Computed example of a mutant assay.
Amino acid sequence: MCGIEAWYMDESIEDQKLPHRLNPNQPVSLKQLEQIGVYYWKLNADIYENDPELEKIREERGYSYMDIITIHPDKLPDYESKVKSFFEEHLHLDDEIRYILDGTAYFDVRDKDDRWIRISMSKGDLITLPAGIYHRFTVDETNYAKAMRLFIGEPVWKAYNRPADDFDIRKAYVNSLKCS
């Protein structure tokens, strides 16, 4: 998979920062992620400020807004409550685009059958989650990730916690899964 690893999660409610792999492990391929609308690129995070490949992706997809967030107890005010809120299952009305510039973290997404898939991300991983997909985010046991957040137009920070099935964007997303 060249840099990214994903797997189906166990049902444990133990520490969210642990890998939570099934035994035996059930890997999820990049193709399976694409079938639920999740796309991935591996970039050179050391040159993110002048990376022509990142610029090309931003141009092609219209990602005009960018900022950087550092998720670490010493860098993020109200760290514990922010990490807890990121891990609440939610959706957005817009795509979520994250590029890991340093550190490691997990994105969890729901598959077509409502099972959790954990996506392990590290430096250089860029991921897009489609609007309407239920997901959550957490750092791993290192408690550190530095991520670029990208948006089309002005950033919208609103998350809608599950259940949010009545939103048009959720209905459109679920319908898109039926077609794929």
Rank of each mutant, 00 (worst) to 15 (best):
A45N: 09
A172S: 13
A6G: 08
P73W: 00
E154D: 05
H92N: 04
S81L: 04
S81V: 08
A105I: 08
T142D: 08
L30K: 14
H90E: 05
M66L: 11
L177G: 14
I152T: 12
A6N: 10
A131T: 05
V156G: 04
H20F: 12
D78Y: 07
D67G: 08
T138V: 01
P73R: 00
N175Y: 15
L76D: 00
I100V: 15
D102A: 15
G124L: 14
G103A: 06
P130Q: 01
D166L: 10
I13R: 13
K123V: 03
T70L: 03
I152H: 09
L76V: 01
D51Y: 10
K31G: 03
R21F: 09
N175I: 11
R58P: 03
V156T: 06
D114N: 14
W41V: 10
D108N: 08
T128M: 13
H20G: 11
N44H: 06
V38Y: 04
I169D: 01
E53K: 15
I133K: 09
T128S: 11
P73T: 05
E59L: 09
W7H: 13
E34H: 13
L177Q: 10
D15C: 02
K158C: 02
V109C: 06
V109R: 02
A145D: 01
N44I: 00
I117C: 02
V83I: 15
E53T: 15
Y106A: 10
H92Y: 02
R118W: 08
Y160L: 14
T104A: 12
E59R: 13
P27R: 11
E60H: 09
A147S: 13
N143D: 14
G62D: 12
K123A: 06
L54D: 09
L101S: 04
E154N: 07
K42P: 00
A6W: 10
I71F: 11
R162N: 08
D125M: 05
R110A: 07
D15F: 00
H20Q: 06
E89W: 11
G103Q: 10
A131F: 01
P24Q: 05
S64K: 12
S120Q: 12
D67S: 05
L18Y: 07
I4H: 00
L91P: 00
K178L: 15
L18G: 02
P130C: 02
D168T: 15
G132P: 02
F107H: 13
R118M: 04
S85E: 13
I100K: 01
I69N: 04
I127T: 13
L101V: 03
G3Q: 03
Q35R: 13
E59M: 09
H92M: 07
E60S: 13
Y8I: 10
R21K: 15
I68S: 01
W41N: 12
E154A: 05
A6S: 14
S64I: 11
E14I: 11
G3T: 01
Y63L: 14
F151H: 12
N175D: 15
L126P: 13
